[in-house]
Design a protein around this nucleic acid. Structure first.
Lengths: 150, 150
DNA sequence: CATGAAACTCGCTTTCA
DNA sequence: TGAAAGCGAGTTTCATG
């Protein structure tokens, strides 16, 4: 689980979180290593699981999903498991977490418009009680993990 | 805002969302294009804003943040703006949204342990009333944007 | 298509335990 | 002395005009 990450690896992680397509040669120039050395360190971090992948960030608004919402769900008796299985097939759901508290599920969803939202909520109603919050603006979006100043 | 994305571009987006470091040549083989053709399409999607970046996904648990929480904030009078400025400097905050409803802010935070959580909540108390939900498990994590079946 | 750059492999060297 | 890490050269693959 725990892994010692030295200062050089933190610099590499910073760079890859800012631009995952940056070349190892360029990263090497910034951190003071040769390209193969960077490649080796990156591969090791992938193997250990520190780096779990590389994703292109696709704009929701540019792909037709203008509306974002946070929806909490308080699942009915016996309906939590069916929901957990079904949620993977809901294309609207970007993030979904099981949480403690009165509601057991919280999810971030993207939608085309208010009609789409209405239809989506209707789809959820069989699983439990929902509460919906419209997202007015993104303040912080997937901030990079930085070196913990412990 | 809205941009026509054809089937080929959706395939390219799918590939880049699965692995942002995949070479254009490889993507080309999968979708039936040459490398330069893929490069051109990708560049255009970057210019338009459909692709807004490429990020390495770094594991929270492997970097010392074992605890995840969702915290809502109901800001005190006059404290919302100061919070919105300060939140960018909070390394614990991965996502933060302004939302409608009784609470005006919701954020996803990563923490080292329960003591870290306690300290973080103390830091928030000056801005408003908080409500904390511990994340028990990730059900869906940054799901890729797929073609809307409209 | 052609050229320059980048990624991978390998063998050599240094360091530190 | 053995393991780990970086470097440099050579080859293959890739990006871009």
């Amino acid at each position: 689980m725990k892994a010692k990450i030295d200062a050089l690896n933190w610099k590499i992680l910073k760079s890859l979180q800012e631009n995952a397509r940056e070349s190892f040669a360029n990263i090497g120039r910034k951190v003071g290593l040769t390209a193969p050395a960077v490649g080796e360190r990156v591969k090791k971090m992938e193997d250990i699981g520190i780096i779990s992948g590389y994703k292109a960030v696709v704009s929701h608004s540019h792909t037709g999903y203008q509306l974002k919402a946070i929806i909490t769900l308080r699942a009915f008796m016996g309906k939590l498991k069916p929901f957990l299985e079904a949620v993977h097939s809901f294309e609207e759901v970007v993030n979904c977490y099981r949480i403690t508290g009165n509601e057991n599920i919280i999810m971030m969803v993207v939608l085309k418009d208010q009609f789409h939202l209405e239809k989506f909520i209707d789809k959820l109603i069989q699983y439990g009680e929902t509460r919906t919050h419209i997202v007015l603006s993104d303040v912080v979006s997937n901030a990079p993990i930085r070196k913990s100043d412990s």
